[in-house]
Design a protein around this nucleic acid. Structure first.
Length: 422
RNA sequence: GUGGCUGUAGCUCAAUGGCAGAGCACUGGACUGUGGCUCCAGGUGUUGCGGGUUCAAGCCCCGUCAGCCACCCCA
């Protein structure tokens, strides 16, 4: 009797194929972050509920975090985001960490929400943060890391855009409209600009107590793609971005607000230009977060990118390619039971020479062994039969171009290494 | 947490309430030492799961689980 036990809702199995995608993303994230001098770190996966209590958006913690009581009765949270942990870690060693602090991380996070395309309950997230620098150029550097990653995986500005806005700019605009008291509601209203119909949006605004005059001003503001010119911060940000060579990726959008409460300045959001998917990443400047968890005030800027949406976007745009699931450089085939130890020995010789070599563990038809190499992405097959053994040769087959050549056994490893580089 | 759509072979999908099908993949053979092509022969199955209605349920009804869509929120 076979019983199937399902995975937890919103959790994913990573078969070698999916694992290869995750590893590919990780390798490119690491390359992008390290290119700018960022150091890898990580926080605990389990945190106290208190860490998130006053910080993140209310709903993120109260409604979307996995919270449980441990055996001692304490309330434990599976981390829904990394930034509060980062702030705590930095605050705890504030005096001894060299600044600026450039840190990045990639690990699992959990949010208890309804799974949909691009949203799961257990996901991996890339976090990149720069602390100790309060300048628009620092904000631009973060955009530079994003752009470097996009380029690493084959995306250009024609396919991906990095939208930005500035909370301080929006604060002053909202103040000018006399809406400061309803700021949070107005931010929420702005966030819904593209989601609601024009009528529904107007009604929503009216329900919030926005007057007709204020509404007109708000609409004018949101339609103004040049609004950034009124912010010195935005101007300096774009100047630095241009110097970094990433201006083509950037697009000012006054409707980009971001939900998290702790953002204070620049905010980011990256999307595919066609707009088919939800936001690929989000982030911004948070100047009070470290101080809020007990440290001295330390400005910071950062962003987070989940593995799910970028994986979908990369696959949609054909950037993923054929990811190999086998690490092997070469498959040693087996002719029959008598020659099997010889194949085993040849595989050992190849490994001793520094190659990653696997052998086919039973004497089945050769076409099956080659099909296996094909299916798992092993490029070379070392064919060892009675004819080759009698002559001290190995037939080296290159599955990539369907050629094969007899090779003196002692020269096999060197030849594979040489051809593998081509 | 709210509302809706879907669930059939490993994968992509068909079947009026009346005997479960196609393509790809897989296995064996044509090729007893050569992978993408061709041909032949074949497993392809608890129709997500549990109830109910009916002479009869993949199909209708209820529940449940999962995925997806719109909210909510957000990576």
């Amino acid at each position: 009797m076979k019983t199937k036990i399902a995975t937890v809702k919103g959790a994913r199995d990573f078969y070698p194929e999916q694992m290869a995608l995750r590893s590919w993303l990780y390798a490119n994230m690491r390359a992008a972050a390290q290119a700018f001098g960022y150091q890898e770190y990580d926080g605990p996966f389990l945190e106290t509920l208190d860490l998130y209590a006053a910080k993140s958006g209310e709903e993120l913690v109260k409604e979307q975090a996995f919270v449980f009581n441990d055996r001692g009765g304490d309330q434990i949270t599976l981390r829904p985001e990394l930034t509060p942990s980062l702030a705590r870690m930095v605050a705890a060693r504030q005096g001894q960490l060299p600044r600026p602090i450039r840190w990045w991380s990639f690990g699992p996070f959990w949010r208890y929400e309804r799974p949909q395309k691009g949203r799961s309950r257990e996901f991996f997230q890339w976090n990149v943060d720069l602390l100790g620098v309060d300048s628009p150029a620092a904000d631009a550097e973060l955009a530079g890391v994003m752009a470097a990653f996009f380029r690493n995986i084959g995306f250009g500005p024609a396919e991906i855009k990095i939208q930005f806005n500035n909370r301080r700019l929006m604060d002053s605009e909202i103040a000018a409209l006399g809406l400061t008291e309803q700021k949070k509601d107005v931010f929420r209203l702005i966030d819904r600009r593209d989601k609601l119909s024009a009528e529904a949006w107007d009604k929503y605004a009216a329900d919030l107590g926005v007057t007709a005059e204020q509404l007109a001003g708000l609409k004018a503001m949101l339609a103004n793609r040049e609004l950034w010119r009124q912010s010195e911060e935005c101007q300096a940000f774009l100047t630095a971005a241009a110097a970094l060579g990433i201006a083509d990726f950037l697009e000012y959008d006054p409707t980009v607000i971001r939900g998290l409460d702790y953002y204070t300045g620049t905010v980011f959001e990256a999307r595919d230009r066609e707009g088919e998917f939800r936001a690929i990443l989000g982030g911004g400047r948070y100047d009070n977060l470290v101080g809020d968890v007990g440290g001295d005030r330390l400005p910071g800027v950062g962003f987070a990118m989940g593995d799910v949406v970028i994986g979908l976007v990369a696959q949609k745009y054909g950037k993923v390619g054929a990811l190999r699931t086998s690490p092997s450089d070469v498959l040693v085939t087996v002719f029959n039971a008598e020659t099997l130890p010889q194949s085993l020995q040849l595989a050992a010789e190849l490994r001793a020479a520094g190659l990653r070599a696997e052998w086919y563990p039973e004497p089945v038809k050769l076409d099956r062994q080659l099909k296996y190499a094909d299916a798992t992405g092993v490029r070379f097959a070392a064919i060892l039969g009675p004819d080759e053994l009698a002559q001290g040769l190995v037939m080296l087959k290159d599955l990539a171009n369907r050629t094969q050549t007899p090779v003196v056994r002692q020269q096999l490893a060197g030849l594979i290494q040489e051809k593998g580089r081509q």
